[in-house]
């Protein structure tokens, strides 16, 4: 007799059903295949984690199982790309952005092969799975690789839109995405322009520049701050490389304070990229870089971690108020 399980029970192969956000990836690729693009997708024993099982069952001949061999996966993808196919390969960001860093540099970027690399469950979104599964360095490693585009979408719709945009993009791309449970920020028909910041609002008191999951937190925090009469702007810096320098300079001109928010070490990530632009241009504006402060994250359920590290809406709001209070008389990053 078949066991009758509670509807609250779940197992790995039913992740798509309980995590509809996982479908954006496969659906975007299925759409491209239907439009005639020579898509090849692959993953290393994680097809249910990244939702590519949906693509694999639709186009089994276009899906490649790599097993637990991520470095081989990246190098094979580069070889596939030489034949004119368009490979999208995915694994946890902690493996892709760190373990495979050299294969990405050598076989993908240096060789100018238009591979699309998808590092999912980035940042601290794997919660209590532990530091081995956290990726708080992948923006830093990937943006230091010449000839590699780095995109950190805020949600599923913008990830799907970025995939659609990527077919016209010559460079290889590292996508840094979450775990498929990020709340939607954008409409699913949005258009993504690679290299262009998405400016949600403008503010004179401060501008929050965010990427990835914390974009939603920044938008909600800005709403709360506005209720107190604070003039706050929000920019989704979804493309980290090439960086939209003009958007940063315009915000620096308009606002008295900039805050960057990222699910990443504050060293080498979005905040560092923004700081480089401000320093290059001699802007002299105060910048507060908010993120993981050069430490290995605690372990806990993801939402508990986001609260702890002030990456949820309340946390970003508190960080913004603190930074504003100290901005007048303290050095940069004194909060």
């Amino acid at each position: 007799m078949k066991n009758q399980l509670s509807p609250d029970s779940w197992q790995y192969r039913s992740l798509n059903a309980i995590t509809p956000g996982l479908n954006y990836f496969s659906d975007a690729l299925i759409d491209l295949v239907e439009k005639g693009y020579p898509i090849i997708a692959g993953s290393g024993d994680l097809q249910f984690s990244n939702g590519l099982n949906r693509f694999a069952s639709r186009y089994p001949n276009r899906y490649i199982q790599f097993g637990i061999s991520e470095q081989n996966m990246v190098s094979v993808a580069a070889g596939i790309a030489t034949t004119g196919q368009m490979p999208f390969v995915a694994t946890f960001a902690s493996f892709l952005g760190l373990l495979c860093c050299e294969q990405i540099r050598m076989d993908v970027a240096y060789c100018q092969q238009p591979v699309r690399l998808i590092g999912h469950h980035t940042g601290i979104s794997l919660g209590f799975y532990g530091t081995s599964h956290h990726a708080t360095e992948d923006i830093s490693t990937m943006r230091a690789i010449a000839g590699l585009t780095v995109i950190s979408p805020a949600d599923g719709p913008s990830f799907a839109a970025a995939i659609r945009a990527s077919v016209e993009w010559q460079e290889p791309i590292y996508f840094r995405i979450g775990r498929g449970r990020e709340p939607d920020v954008y409409d699913k028909n949005m258009t993504f322009e690679i290299g262009k910041a998405i400016e949600h609002s403008q503010g004179e008191d401060l501008t929050i520049i965010a990427c990835g999951m914390p974009v939603k937190s920044a938008l909600d925090a800005a709403d709360a701050l506005r209720n107190d009469g604070i003039s706050v702007g929000v920019i989704d810096m979804a493309t980290i490389k090439p960086l939209d320098r003009q958007a940063i300079l315009a915000a620096a001109k308009r606002s008295r304070l900039l805050i960057t928010v990222e699910e990443h070490n504050i060293i080498g990530g979005l905040g560092a990229a923004v700081a480089e632009v401000l320093a290059d241009e001699g802007c002299g504006i105060k910048l507060f870089r908010h993120g993981i402060r050069d430490e290995y994250s605690l372990i806990a359920p993801p939402n508990h971690l986001y609260a702890h590290y002030k990456l949820d809406a309340a946390g970003v709001e508190a960080v913004a108020r603190g930074a504003m209070a100290k901005a007048g008389n303290a050095s940069i990053n004194a909060v």
Partner: peptide, 17 residues
Amino acid sequence: GHALSNGAGMAIGGRKL
């Protein structure tokens, strides 16, 4: 250590084509 992987990718690409 990369080349055999790269070559395997080319062989897969050739098969697709």
